[in-house]
Design a protein around this nucleic acid. Structure first.
Length: 406
DNA sequence: GGAGCGACTTAGTAGACTGCTT
DNA sequence: AAGCAGTCTACTAAGTCGCTCC
């Protein structure tokens, strides 16, 4: 038997409980029990109070700005909460809890969910069990998403020309649509649905408030608002003068708390062109940028190959140690300077990227076929670019033609 | 035509894991 | 072996958006 208390080191893994000796704990526990048994009622009460006194400072929390449902404990979800969706002739999965049964068994092949239940805290909210990202069904819809964004390539110039023209349209709704579309296209803003929770201070494009948008003459706009997940969007952008003027008009005569785009909501924006929603712009802009950059890279590589006869880079570690001449020292100093400059640049890049969720783009906005095609061209293993789960998610993209362009 | 519903995508986070340095 | 920084993965909340119904 091993005394478990003797096992030190954080990497030690207990594999067999039966080899551990827990009798000291057991004995201590029994002794305490015995002690309590022999105590008088007063003594027990005193002990309880002492315990409470110790715990009390951890028993309460002061919460500021409470939301209705905040801090509520979620009860356990039971089979009787759950509706499952299976094939007509598929056997009904056995209910895992004895005496319980599923709320409902459906056979709906027009939807992808396998099961759902209503959140007990907010019964209007649905919770779903969906297929994994690696499933062929999800892969198919992922491919369709990128195909739709690719279609935008043929229309984007027309769309941009259209909304640019409408910056000065006489009709205010048309002007608002034009400016909102411009912001979504240029800044990749979310569309900003209306939320029934009226105290929510988070916004998207259509729900921007007067105080979220400041005019900085002559033609800059400063955005400052809380977006999805309460993440602050703080950005100053130079815009075309008609946009600057239009935003000034939308603001005039309004107070803080009022909508900048008072004639707009997301359904108006989305119904403009069928299935062209804000995220299509995001997908398109992200993927086309990656595509262009990999192409530019291509040209640089070719240029690089043209410059032959370059001496191989020598590493700084010389084997022999000598008294170094001033020239050598000078050169070393320069090398160190260059290295410091490089590190400084890297530091700035890192600082700049700190607020950019690159992982999110990779998962949701960048057509994986661009990256796979690049890998094929440069004989780079795709495993170097995608982790295990992304490889699984993007199975549908792996057989892409090496000359694929977005 | 707008509110609410239902189904789906997008996104951040915690904690585990990995691999390098000391 | 410890310390660490970066990456991976599961989890699920927070969005979007089309549809239905009044």
């Amino acid at each position: 038997m091993t005394d478990w208390r003797q096992i030190l080191g954080r990497n030690h893994v207990i594999k067999k409980f039966e080899l551990c000796d827990f009798t000291p704990i057991y004995e201590w526990h029994m002794k305490e029990k015995e002690k309590k048994k022999n105590m008088s009622t007063e003594e027990k009460k005193a002990l309880k109070e002492e315990k409470l006194k110790q715990e009390e400072k951890y028993m309460w929390a002061i919460v500021d700005g409470v939301k209705e449902r905040m801090g509520k404990l979620k009860r356990r979800i039971l089979p009787s909460d759950i509706t499952i969706n299976i094939g007509k002739n598929a056997p009904v999965p056995e209910c895992p809890i004895l005496g319980e049964s599923w709320k409902e068994v459906k056979h709906d092949n027009t939807v992808t969910w396998l099961a759902f239940w209503n959140d007990p805290i907010n019964s209007k909210e649905f919770k779903y069990v969906f297929l994994a990202a690696s499933s062929s069904l999800k892969g198919q819809s992922d491919r369709e998403k990128y195909e739709k964004a690719r279609l935008l390539k043929d229309y984007i110039h027309g769309i941009r020309a259209q909304y640019t023209k409408n910056f000065t349209n006489k009709d205010i709704t048309m002007r608002q649509i034009a400016v909102a579309t411009y912001l979504i296209d240029k800044l990749a803003l979310r569309s900003g649905n209306e939320k029934d929770d009226d105290e929510a201070d988070m916004v998207g494009c259509c729900t921007l408030k007067i105080e979220n948008v400041a005019l900085l003459p002559p033609n800059k706009i400063q955005f400052d608002f809380l977006g999805k997940d309460s993440i602050r969007y703080f950005n100053t952008v130079e815009v075309e003068l008609p946009v600057y003027k239009a935003i000034g008009q939308f603001r005039s005569g309004k107070k803080d708390g009022q909508d900048l785009f008072d004639k707009l909501d997301t359904s108006k924006l989305n119904s403009l062109m069928p299935s062209l929603t804000a995220k299509v712009f995001c997908t398109y802009n992200a993927s086309i940028t990656l595509d262009e950059m990999t192409q530019r890279e291509e040209m640089n590589v070719d240029l690089g190959r043209a410059k032959k006869g370059k001496p191989p880079l020598k590493d700084a570690e010389g084997k022999k140690k000598k008294n170094l001449s001033p020239e050598v020292l000078e050169r070393k100093l320069l090398q160190i300077d260059a290295k410091m400059e490089k590190l400084e640049r890297e530091k700035i890049t890192k600082e700049d990227l700190k607020t950019v969720a690159l992982g999110t783009s990779k998962i949701n906005y960048l057509d994986p076929r661009i990256s796979v095609a690049w890998c094929k061209h440069h004989e780079v293993l795709k495993e170097k670019i995608f982790n295990k789960s992304l490889l699984a998610k993007f199975t549908w993209a792996m057989d892409v033609d090496p000359d694929f362009r977005f």
